[in-house]
Amino acid sequence: MMTGISLSILAGCLLSLQNIFNSKVSEKTGTWVTTALVLGLGFAASLTLGLLFQGTRMFRLGNMEAWFAFSGLLGVGVVVCMVQGIKHLGPTYGVLVALSSQLILALMLDSLGWLGLEKVDFTMKQLIGVLVVIGGAAVFKLSGNKRNARGAVHEHAEMEGLK
């Protein structure tokens, strides 16, 4: 039990660091170099660990289907959007909004039984959960801290630029 919880905490902390490091890389190199770098290194590390744990079994792709290859594009979407989100909103608010949208879409897919997922009925508990999550993101944003004010100026400047 404790090992499982510790591993989950480790994974969550690494995810947090990963998002922040990636956004740091993009400040110097731009979105596309960052995305290529992140996925390239991710591939190399996964291949290495896979070979370590599984040896040559790693290359046996038993029930391979063509669409598996294209799902790599989802990874591109994750990195690009997360880096951009953090750039505009700061790490915490960016992660808060992404997390809310992640949970809500997961809930929708479950309730509708889409993408081959087993249909799980939408309950009152889940409605309350979603409202608390969205409320949390809103409360976080409520008070005008410095970055919020700067962000507003930034967006204003962008609007001016569009005219």
């Binding site: 596309w32 995305t35 290529a36 996925l39 390239g40 991710g42 591939f43 996964s46 291949l47 660990l49 896979g50 744990f53 599984q54 790693m58 046996r60 792709l61 598996f68 290859a69 294209f70 799902s71 790599g72 594009l73 989802l74 990874g75 591109v76 990195v79």
Partner: peptide, 15 residues
């Protein structure tokens, strides 16, 4: 591991 390596490889190529 196969899934992680494969999806990140194709993502890398796309990027």
């Amino acid at each position: 591991w196969q899934a992680a390596a494969l999806t990140q490889l194709t993502g890398f190529i796309a990027a």
